[in-house]
Design a protein around this nucleic acid. Structure first.
Length: 646
RNA sequence: GCCGACGUAGCUCAGCUGGUAGAGCAGCUCACUCGUAAUGAGCAGGUCGUCCGUUCAAAUCGGAUCGUCGGCUCCA
């Protein structure tokens, strides 16, 4: 038998017989590592410990210290959960698990009755005893026929169907621990005891392969860690996320109100409006520099415009329609700006000299979102976007995309959001236009993203129905990914609206069209931003920026003077002269997330100073003159600074 | 829309197996006039989401409905 060379991360090499497993490599390195090993990593991909190696490889042993160790633990916990469910509900059929969420795993079951919270407790207990049994996980390679026979004999119909999904030439493996066996490619821990602690989180209904016409399944979510301590820390983080929930924070900070009288439609309170308007103004201030001009189109349109755009057919059930005052007149409430913009473009003649035309609009849009999709302020029926459409010559597309990325970077830097990741979404099943145009547009997008220095992920079939799109995904402080900015090439609408411009050659040409938004839906952005910041907004966005705190009643007139001076330069300042202790009012200001408080007592009145205190700081700053404060804060606002004072 | 859970004061929640509601915070009043995250006392506040039903009696049990949450699906 020929040998193989394994190169370890520290550069050392080991010579082994061909067919040696990852675990055997770990054993050669040391017994401690062998005990702690959870999986191997070759070229960034996790491999099972029992997997035989072939050829020379660079191998890394993954333990619980490696973040990927958690994935292996949670993936193994799926099997333990399925085992526990089968023990308690022998008639249950297992479907499959998935653990590509952050720190969460799931498994779907076909059962007669949905799981109750009590069931989850029992299942979790059963899992604990399986962990205590500490059975070894074993890997077995089967032929397709053997696997089919196995699952047929077990009565696992869903598994047979999953088996059929596996591509022809893939190796079929099953994993066993104790009496439980599951179709799986791994990797798995060595023995159940390496899963230190499990916790089931919730259960919900789902469909086999997500198909509503297919069998209904019950999904259970759980999480697992190498130790109780890590599990506890994770549950603590979930609790922290709950505290940041925009629905809670939005109410606590008096930003908005949601009401059963208008499901999915926020009521903005004055403070929420400050945030909303500040964001809009921010974008509006950037528009002149990036060559956008703002327009406003009607809220109600005769349905013809949506028939022309294709939205009537595709989104009819998701829009609001009613009869107009004229016989047979059907009106639709605007759910998107593009048809109106296309129509407006078509009403006058355009020369290539005018292009690109960049039209922006902040109108409210209404979509009849399905009730189950509504979520706080992030998924609503009434919203506004920082929307714009660009009409340009096809050759100008790359330039426009680049400019869009520059604007996006500027916006997100100012907002303190970093680490955007780009992805291109390609042609979906239902689409307008010609496939060749799509291919061309997709290529242009990918090249532009890469040209702008970003790496580019592909989301196959995720494009809009009228064209492929680039999305900027943002990962918030809690590790959740959100799609924010997006730019889309439209290969359908210019043709449907018969858009034309006079080219250099005097002939008529069809313009290219781009849809784009930087913040996307303002309501959704605000929701995400609240959760990311926990309500600690940058100075320039804070609804109340400064709170003056007179120590005693005799200091209140001076506090009001200072407030007036600040307000006169556009700083949002208030006075809290309630007859409460200073400590109480400072605590209240902290809870209200006010960035700057000013303490004003005898000393400050006498010297014409203020004693500023920054949000979340343990101690006061040195006193400064009231005049210096006013000009510093005016500047902080003009420059949209994150902090009021440097 | 589908599956599941939930809905009690402005907020967070308690209220066991049916006997017509309770706390903390917030609010209001009074006293205190205070130096960097909770001064004290008092007052007020709810037809228990809504509708039907079971019962001598329903926040509590059953049904429907609306809404919310967690998922699925969808996202122009």
């Amino acid at each position: 038998m020929s040998g193989l060379t394994v190169t370890l991360p520290d550069g050392k090499t080991l010579e082994l017989e061909s067919g040696a497993t990852v675990l055997e490599v770990a054993e050669r390195i040391g017994p401690g590592l062998a005990r702690a090993a959870l999986a191997g990593r070759i070229g960034g991909k996790l491999v099972d410990l029992r997997q035989p190696l072939s050829g020379d490889v660079e191998l890394e042993i993954v333990t619980a210290r490696d973040p990927a160790g958690g994935e292996v633990i949670r993936h193994s916990a799926e099997h333990v959960m399925a085992d526990a469910v089968k023990r308690l509900f022998p008639s249950a059929q297992v479907d499959a698990g998935r653990s590509d969420h952050a720190e969460k795993f799931q498994y779907d079951f076909l059962v007669d009755e949905p799981f109750t919270p009590e069931d989850l407790e029992r299942i979790e207990k059963e899992m604990d005893s399986i962990l205590a049994e500490d059975a070894r996980f074993e890997r077995q390679v089967l032929s397709r026929q053997e696997a089919a026979d196995l699952f047929r004999s077990m009565g696992e119909e869903l598994k047979l169907s999953r088996l059929a999904d596996i591509p022809e030439d893939d190796v079929i493996t099953v994993f066993r621990h104790g009496d439980f066996v599951d179709l799986c490619r791994g990797p798995h821990v060595q023995h159940a005891g390496q899963i230190g602690a499990v916790k089931l989180l919730e259960s919900s209904g789902t469909y086999f392969r997500g198909d509503e016409s297919g069998p209904k399944l019950q999904r259970i979510y759980g999480t697992a860690f190498a130790s109780r301590k890590e599990l506890k820390a994770h549950l603590h983080r979930i609790e922290e996320a709950r505290k940041r929930d925009h629905r809670r924070v939005g109410v606590e900070l008096g930003l908005f109100h949601m009401d059963a009288l208008a499901p999915g439609s926020p009521f903005y309170l004055p403070k929420g409006m400050v945030l909303y308007n500040s964001l809009v103004r921010f974008i509006q201030d950037l528009y002149p520099r990036y060559g956008y001009r703002e327009i406003q189109t009607p809220q109600l349109f005769r349905s013809d415009v949506f028939k022309t755009s294709g939205h009537y057919e595709k989104f009819h059930d998701d829009m609001y329609w009613f009869e107009g005052s004229d016989e047979g007149e059907e009106l639709g409430v605007k759910a998107m700006n593009c048809p109106g913009h296309c129509h407006l473009f078509s009403t006058t003649k355009h020369s290539y000299r005018e292009l690109p035309i960049r039209w922006a609009e902040f109108s409210r849009l209404h979509r009849n979102e399905r009730s189950g999709t509504l979520n706080g302020i992030t998924r609503v029926r009434s919203f506004a976007q920082d929307d714009a459409h660009i009409f340009c010559e096809p050759e100008q597309i790359p330039e426009e995309i680049e400019s869009f990325f520059r604007m996006t970077s500027e916006v997100y830097t100012t907002l303190g959001l970093e680490g955007l990741e780009m992805a291109v979404s390609t042609r979906p099943e239902k689409f307008l236009g010609e496939p060749s145009d799509w291919d061309q547009a997709e290529k242009t997008l990918i090249a532009s993203v890469e040209g702008a220095g970003f790496s580019c992920r592909i989301k196959p079939g995720d494009g809009a129905f009228y064209g492929p799109k680039v999305e900027a995904d943002f990962r918030d402080v809690l590790g959740r990914a959100w799609t924010l900015a997006t730019i889309q090439v439209d290969v359908g609408m210019p043709g449907r609206f018969g858009l034309r411009y006079v080219g250099r050659d005097g002939e008529l040409h069809q313009p290219a069209m781009l849809h784009r938004a930087v913040l996307g839906s303002l309501e959704r952005f605000i929701g995400i931003y609240i959760e990311h910041t926990g309500g600690d907004f940058p100075f320039w966005l804070s609804p109340i920026q400064v709170l003056a705190l007179p120590i005693a009643d005799r200091h209140a007139p001076r506090a009001r003077e200072i407030r007036a001076a600040l307000v006169s330069v556009g700083v949002r300042a208030e006075v809290d002269d309630r007859s409460e202790t200073l400590g109480f009012r400072i605590r209240d200001a902290e809870k209200q997330k006010i960035p700057l408080t000013l303490v004003i007592g005898d000393e400050e009145v006498e010297r014409g100073t203020v004693s500023p205190r920054l949000r979340k700081s343990k101690q006061a700053m040195d006193a400064m003159s009231a005049e210096a404060l006013v000009s510093a804060l005016r500047e902080a606002n003009a420059e949209r600074r994150p902090k009021p004072l440097a």
